[in-house]
Amino acid sequence: KLKCQHCNHLFATKPELLFYKGKMFLFCGKNCSDEYKKKN
């Protein structure tokens, strides 16, 4: 199981990947990825 970088939920589906500031982040979906980008 993977943990979403934004909402901290565990998920087993294909993660949404975001490469940001030289790091890779995993998200449970596009919505969390977009929210994370807005906040950072």
Rank of each mutant, 00 (worst) to 15 (best):
K3C: 04
K1E: 06
F19D: 15
Y36V: 04
A12N: 03
E16N: 02
K37P: 06
L2V: 13
L18I: 04
K30C: 03
Y20M: 09
E35K: 08
Y20G: 08
L10W: 13
L17C: 12
D34W: 04
H9G: 13
K21I: 03
F19Y: 10
H6A: 10
Y20P: 02
N8M: 12
P15H: 03
L17Q: 15
D34G: 08
S33G: 05
F27K: 01
K23Q: 07
C32W: 00
N8P: 05
E16P: 02
N31I: 04
N31Q: 10
A12I: 15
E35Y: 06
M24L: 06
L17A: 13
T13I: 14
P15R: 06
M24E: 15
F27P: 01
C28D: 02
N31G: 11
M24G: 09
K23F: 04
H9T: 14
Q5A: 12
K23S: 09
S33L: 07
Q5S: 03
H9K: 14
G22S: 10
N40R: 10
K23M: 10
E16W: 05
L10Q: 14
L26V: 14
K39M: 07
F19V: 12
N8W: 04
A12P: 05
Y36M: 07
L2E: 15
K37C: 08
L2H: 05
K37T: 07
A12E: 10
K21E: 13
A12M: 06
K1M: 03
K3M: 03
P15T: 05
C28S: 00
H9S: 11
K21T: 11
L26A: 14
P15N: 06
F25M: 14
G22V: 02
K23T: 10
Y36L: 04
S33A: 11
L2F: 13
K37Q: 14
F19T: 11
D34L: 05
F25Q: 11
Y20E: 14
Y36N: 04
K37L: 05
Y36T: 04
G22I: 02
F27E: 01
K21Y: 07
K21F: 11
L18Q: 10
Q5M: 07
K14D: 08
E35Q: 08
N31E: 09
C28V: 00
H9F: 04
K21R: 11
S33T: 06
K37V: 11
N31K: 14
T13R: 07
C4A: 01
K30G: 11
N40S: 14
Y36F: 10
C7D: 06
K23P: 02
K39T: 09
A12G: 11
Q5V: 08
G22E: 14
K37A: 13
Y36A: 08
K23L: 09
L26D: 09
K14G: 04
F25A: 14
K23R: 07
D34T: 05
F27V: 04
T13G: 12
M24D: 13
F11S: 07
L26T: 14
L2T: 15
G22A: 09
K38A: 14
K39H: 08
E16C: 07
F27S: 01
F11A: 04
K14S: 08
C7S: 00
K1A: 02
F11R: 03
E16S: 05
Y20C: 12
D34M: 07
L2A: 15
Y20L: 13
K30W: 05
F19R: 15
D34Q: 11
C28T: 00
N8H: 06
H6D: 07
K37W: 07
D34S: 09
A12D: 10
P15F: 01
K39R: 13
F25K: 09
H9E: 11
Y20D: 11
E16Q: 11
N40Y: 03
L2Y: 03
F11E: 02
E35P: 02
E35R: 12
L18G: 11
Y20F: 14
E16T: 10
K3Q: 11
Q5D: 02
K23W: 02
A12F: 04
C32T: 00
C28Q: 00
K39Q: 10
H6E: 13
K30V: 10
K39E: 12
K30H: 09
F27D: 01
G29A: 11
L10D: 13
N8A: 13
C32E: 00
L18K: 09
Q5K: 03
A12L: 06
L17P: 14
G29E: 05
Q5W: 03
S33F: 02
E35S: 12
L10Y: 11
G29L: 02
E16L: 05
F25E: 10
L26N: 15
N40K: 06
M24C: 12
N31Y: 05
K1F: 01
K3S: 13
G22W: 03
N31W: 09
N40P: 04
K21G: 13
L17W: 15
M24I: 15
K21M: 11
N31T: 08
S33Y: 05
A12Q: 10
Y36S: 05
N31S: 10
F19S: 14
G29Q: 07
N8L: 12
C28G: 00
S33E: 11
K21H: 12
F27M: 09
P15Q: 06
K39A: 14
N31A: 08
F27I: 02
E16A: 07
K1L: 02
C7I: 00
C28H: 01
G29R: 06
M24W: 09
L17R: 15
L17V: 10
K14Q: 06
H9M: 14
H6F: 05
F25I: 06
M24V: 04
F19E: 15
K3R: 08
N31D: 07
Y36Q: 05
A12C: 07
Y20T: 13
Q5T: 06
P15K: 10
F11L: 05
L2P: 08
L10E: 15
K14A: 04
F25H: 06
L2Q: 15
F19Q: 15
D34V: 12
F11I: 03
K21V: 04
F27A: 02
P15C: 02
K37G: 11
Y20R: 06
H9A: 13
K37N: 15
L26E: 15
K21D: 13
Y20A: 14
K21S: 13
K3E: 13
F25P: 04
K39C: 04
C4R: 00
N8I: 04
L26G: 15
A12R: 10
L2R: 13
K38T: 12
F11D: 02
C4P: 01
M24P: 14
G29H: 02
K39G: 13
F25R: 14
E35T: 06
C7A: 00
N8K: 13
F11W: 03
K14T: 11
K39S: 13
L26F: 04
K23D: 07
Y20S: 13
H9C: 08
E16R: 07
F27H: 02
L2S: 14
K23V: 07
L10F: 15
F19I: 04
G22F: 03
L10V: 13
H9Y: 13
H6G: 10
N8T: 09
L18C: 06
K3T: 07
M24A: 08
K14C: 03
C28K: 01
Y20I: 14
K30S: 10
Y20H: 08
F25T: 09
Q5P: 03
G22R: 06
L17T: 15
N8S: 14
C7M: 01
K38V: 12
H6W: 07
C7V: 00
H9R: 14
L10I: 05
S33M: 10
K30M: 09
K14Y: 01
T13A: 08
C28W: 00
H6R: 11
Y36P: 01
C32Q: 00
K21Q: 11
K37M: 03
K21P: 06
C4K: 01
K37S: 08
K30L: 09
A12S: 08
K1C: 04
